[in-house]
Design a protein around this nucleic acid. Structure first.
Lengths: 263, 263
DNA sequence: CGGCGCCTTGAGAGTAATCAACGATAGTGG
DNA sequence: CCACTATCGTTGATTACTCTCAAGGCGCCG
């Protein structure tokens, strides 16, 4: 893995700070999952050429619709969610920068859930055919996308465990650890802080808690000196303790192919 | 869909009741997802030739291990689960007859969860290579497996919604509806009853409830006259009401390709 | 027959939801 | 520039759902 990482290192002196200041998050993400050639990287960057800005709380793919293309998040947080009859909303997955939503759009029928932005976002929509071509001509990318998908599935399972057998405090600790790790993987951690552009209501809809209880749980975390929330960013002051409380282990976020498993 | 179904109908007079009395559940399952040729069906049946019996509560794939092959359930219930540090177990998916576990074993690294039987089971393990060959030579099966995977993912998301924003009674109602629908899809519903070879403890580990509360919730469902639990089978006496309470809609269980969506 | 696992019941404790109100903040329009 | 409004965060009081602990019953298998 460290071998793969070193491929990603670009001398920062020579880098121009462009629109994507920190590098293309999709490239950063997939580079952690498979070795990419220069051609692979430029193909990915080509995909991200014409992103569009979206406001917060905007639906990208509505429930019950047949999606036409995939979505890549470049900036901001989006999510998969379901609006329930009793007025409640359940968020079933976060889409962070570098995440690709519905790669197999080609095989998808009607959506059983919606996809929408949480914060303001910079997004690219990728037509079905472009995705098919990409996968056909770039086996490394295809492999990385498969692993990314496995990672998403594992994350979904982890959320089930989170909701099913942890207290409010434990759930929140686990979620914060996950967000920190995922942010780190796409270069969004600065100074030990990662972005958290969510309202307490959003957190509640994620963790199955009321916004009032989210508020009190956050206060408890602050009281323990575990976390600091300032602006829209999160800092873990005592990462080890938060991980222990949330029973967090980052393995599920970075799946490896059998070929890569040596020990 | 009804066109697909009719392909599956075999004159029952001419059928010999063999070990798999009700037909191969894997075939039944995949036939609902794609049209299969006689060659496809015989290939699937060939896979299931040498099943093995397992007792209840037996681990099939342990946590933290690199799985070597996929598993098909022919009889009984298995599950994906995670054992948590606090002594709790969270079940993250049920594997019913006809379900194929870890089709992409070829791409899987270490498991982040375990797979084990709940009830006594009849199972087949399918070596990686056999699966790769099957997919390569049977495009219809490959397609059906993709849809089955989508169905599993949708089910996992649905469980998140179940845990995150429903009461004990609602969760249980939803789960029972799902089990009934999935059983129906593989010919396991007889007389309005489907198999439910689970203990109340298993249900608790699925729904994020204590076994005591599962017991009381079951009593409430019986008191309402909604369900009947006898032997190890479940009958919905007032299916409509149970569906309403659980906000259940079966769409997520049977994904369709865009090509199949006409209306 | 004894033991074990599972189901059942009761009592009490605790966690989280709901309801209601107020404060802070940011964006909007006059 | 400031009032205005909406959204979000915070707090208190009360309710309710679910858990834990404890004990007894039932049925099955050795």
């Amino acid at each position: 893995m460290s071998a793969l990482r070193s491929l990603a290192i670009v001398p920062s002196v020579s880098r121009v700070e462009t629109a994507d200041e920190a590098g293309n998050p999709l490239v950063l993400r997939l580079q952690r999952l498979a070795a990419l050639t220069a051609a692979d990287i430029s193909a990915l960057e080509h995909l991200s050429l014409h992103p569009r800005r979206y406001g917060p709380r905007v639906d990208l793919i509505r429930d019950d619709v047949v999606p036409k293309d995939a979505v890549v998040v470049l900036e901001g947080f989006a999510c998969r969610y379901q609006q329930r009859g009793n007025g409640r909303r359940q968020i079933m997955a976060y889409l962070l920068p570098g995440d690709l939503c519905d790669v197999d759009a080609a095989y998808l029928g009607r959506m059983d859930h919606a996809v929408g932005t949480l914060s303001p976002c910079l997004l690219v929509r990728i037509p079905r055919q472009a995705l098919v071509d990409l996968i056909a001509h770039h086996p490394n990318i295809a492999h990385a996308l498969r692993l990314a998908k496995l990672s998403e599935e594992a994350t979904t399972r982890e959320w089930i465990a989170n909701l099913g057998c942890r207290s409010a405090l434990e759930r929140m600790a686990h979620l914060f650890c996950e967000l920190m790790a995922r942010s780190e993987a796409v270069g969004l951690v600065q100074d030990g802080s990662c972005p958290l552009p969510l309202t307490q209501g959003d957190l509640g809809d994620t963790l199955g808690l009321s916004n009032v209880h989210v508020n009190r749980t956050l206060q408890e975390m602050r009281r323990h000196g575990w976390v600091e929330l300032r602006g829209k960013s999160l800092r873990l002051l005592k990462p080890k303790q938060v991980q222990r409380v949330g029973e967090f282990s980052p393995n599920y976020l970075q799946p490896t192919s059998p070929a890569n498993v040596h020990f």
